[in-house]
């Protein structure tokens, strides 16, 4: 059992270790390990204008996706939660989960068909890229919110607020939003992590000037290995940072509830 666990861990860690090695290695061609040590690849990353453009695009897409997800997701989750009819709630959840179940490629192909026409010529625009990310990530935020609304007994809190004289606006902004603040935050960490790493859809619907970071990485691997490794390490660090922040937020949320 212990041997299996070790093998599995090695299997998990080896690619990351190799990436790190490659990013600091000199030449790496036709050998198990690279030869020499250098910081050259990180320097080259900084100097590469297409990388900084991809980085900016990714940041823009992630931020916009997060904002739009909250603006749509919070009221949508609230509407689904307040809906008395069980069948409507089920239908709402099903529709919101479809983008998770359907392969991203299907969505991307749909986008290509629909938005390459003269009537809707938006393929390759940043707006369409963001819209795609919103469709893909919204279900995760919705599910986090719906689960927490149940768990935090939001319906009862609203009943109380109503009895105390609070109308809909007061209830939503004074009770619903503050009660769900930790849920929104932890849901957004997931959204951001998914959006940063998203490749399939971005690769197909982004234009030449608004490639996201993962699509840029694919291009990088066609060139020097060390450069590609260094670029991947940057993405990995971002993902790791998101995970740590997510865990911290979840812990803060957990302690606030007990």
């Amino acid at each position: 059992m212990a041997v299996l666990t070790c093998l599995y861990l090695i299997y998990l860690v080896a690619p990351i270790a190799l990436l790190l090695l490659g990013s600091f290695g000199g030449v790496w061609a036709n050998s198990m390990l690279p030869s020499g040590a250098t910081l050259h690849w990180y320097g080259a990353l900084l100097d590469d204008p297409s990388l900084s453009r991809a980085f900016r695009t990714s940041l823009t897409v992630v931020s916009a996706t997060c904002v739009i997800d909250v603006v749509i997701g919070l009221p949508a989750a609230y509407a689904l939660h307040s809906q008395a009819s069980k069948s409507v709630r089920f239908a709402g959840r099903l529709i919101s989960l479809l983008p998770v179940a359907v392969p991203e490629l299907t969505l991307a192909f749909g986008f290509i068909l629909l938005f390459s026409t003269d009537t809707l010529p938006w393929l390759g625009t940043s707006s369409l890229l963001i819209a795609g990310h919103v469709v893909l990530t919204l279900p995760y935020l919705l599910n986090t919110l719906l689960a927490d609304m149940e768990h935090l007994r939001l319906a009862e809190l609203e009943m109380v607020a109503g009895s105390l004289g609070a109308g809909f606006g007061n209830r939503f902004f004074d009770i619903v939003v503050p009660t769900l603040r930790h849920s929104v935050l932890s849901g957004l960490i997931t959204v951001a992590a998914l959006s940063i790493g998203e490749f399939q859809l971005s690769n197909l619907v982004s234009g030449f000037l608004n490639r996201t970071y993962p699509t840029f990485l694919l291009q990088a691997f066609y060139g020097a290995t060390g450069f590609a490794c260094a670029a991947t390490v940057v993405l990995l660090s971002l993902a790791l940072a998101a995970a740590v922040v997510g865990a911290l937020v979840a812990r803060a949320g957990g302690s606030a509830r007990t």
Partner: peptide, 29 residues
């Protein structure tokens, strides 16, 4: 609607607003 009836209700599970202090809870109505 409930918020226009002007009735004070105490629920089984207290149902205090967790993000408000005791005095803020009482001041809310």
């Amino acid at each position: 609607p409930p918020h226009r009836r002007n009735l004070g209700i105490v629920f089984q599970a207290y149902a205090l607003f967790q993000h408000m202090t005791a005095v803020q809870n009482v001041a809310y109505p």
